[in-house]
Design a protein around this nucleic acid. Sequence first.
DNA 1: GAAGATAGATAGCAAGCGCTCACTTTCTAT
DNA 2: ATAGAAAGTGAGCGCTTGCTATCTATCTTC
Lengths: 209, 209
Amino acid sequence: MTTTRERRTQAQRREGTIGALLEATVTCLTERGYAATSTAAVCAEAGVSQGALFRHFPTRQALLVATAEHVAIRNVEAFRATTEGATVDTVDDVADVLAHLRAAVLSPTNQTWRELLVAARADADLRDALLPARELLQAQILAVAADLWGDRLSADDLPAVLSIVINMLDGLAFSALDPDPAAAPGRTVERALRLLAEMIVSHYPEEPS
Amino acid sequence: MTTTRERRTQAQRREGTIGALLEATVTCLTERGYAATSTAAVCAEAGVSQGALFRHFPTRQALLVATAEHVAIRNVEAFRATTEGATVDTVDDVADVLAHLRAAVLSPTNQTWRELLVAARADADLRDALLPARELLQAQILAVAADLWGDRLSADDLPAVLSIVINMLDGLAFSALDPDPAAAPGRTVERALRLLAEMIVSHYPEEPS
DNA sequence: GAAGATAGATAGCAAGCGCTCACTTTCTAT
DNA sequence: ATAGAAAGTGAGCGCTTGCTATCTATCTTC
């Protein structure tokens, strides 16, 4: 008995395995970290052979760079979704945005991005290869932030405030070693986010409409 | 001709090579990152053989944990030195403390600590082994901060503000991929630190003496 | 100064790494 | 239907890894 097999074009097959490899790389990076994300581990996770991997990606690093660009796009989208339709008039508004932002920053794709960034610090080639994606990500996030805050913050202050918020959340993510980083924020962190919201709102009061 | 050789006790020899190994591990971690810090690399850097390493440390992980505790102590001291004799009355005072703090957070020992923290996220054993040092570090830093700010911030707010500052600086350090992270802060970062100082001071005004 | 303990050097092992290559399977063009 | 291109397989190569076993050098104890 022959199992019925769906017929796919070459392009579909290609895209399918490439996508599976990228997703598997994200999973491996978040679950095992950079060092343990071997080509064999990725292939096992994706359910393909090593030959398949090296057909589409010339080196392990190429796979990682492709994964970085993959998650960078998704991270921008997540960031945009977080601020979509949000208001920043009251302290509660801002605190709400911060809470959602924190959840986004702790997501697997953001974790993957961070893992690659850390690895790039000690690897000049990877650092250079990651530079375009880094600049694109930064520019896009700044644009999204401008959409939300642009009318109340000056062109100088917007990136500065963004730097405070994003870097604090990133730092939080780095030092959150719990197996499930999406768990409850913890009292200090909760208080810190609330405090940050209060500070920002009181420093940039609602402009008279 | 026999070269004159200083005579050392066993304890001195022991301490000497252990110290050299810990220092070498710090150097390797900051310059090459966690994955490339192999036992061979550390031994080459320290100028001892692999046999010497495995006499004093049963496994590579034991060496890394010992290094973590080593730098944790030095990090607390650096943090204390930063706030020693500092005042936090004006915005300029706080901005000054933040600038010094930033430099401390970017130091090699702090970089080493961060590298180990990131590795611990994906390695449950390392995470458990690092927990005591983590808690000690956190408690000590909180104590130092209380010395500086304790009279103006409540017991609830102090750790929260500390969380904002430290996590922001850590996040900054993580995303600073430049070969020399002690370089000039960059305009956005400078503005961000200034802004943070303004926010904190205006949110916690000097208490009437 | 002999005996024993500790420190350090060197060679090498099993396992895992990134990657290649000869090969089969699946799709496409004629 | 068939030739050829593209996709995917899996054994295996050269190399590095953490770690061990064996041996020598140095210090301590009596």
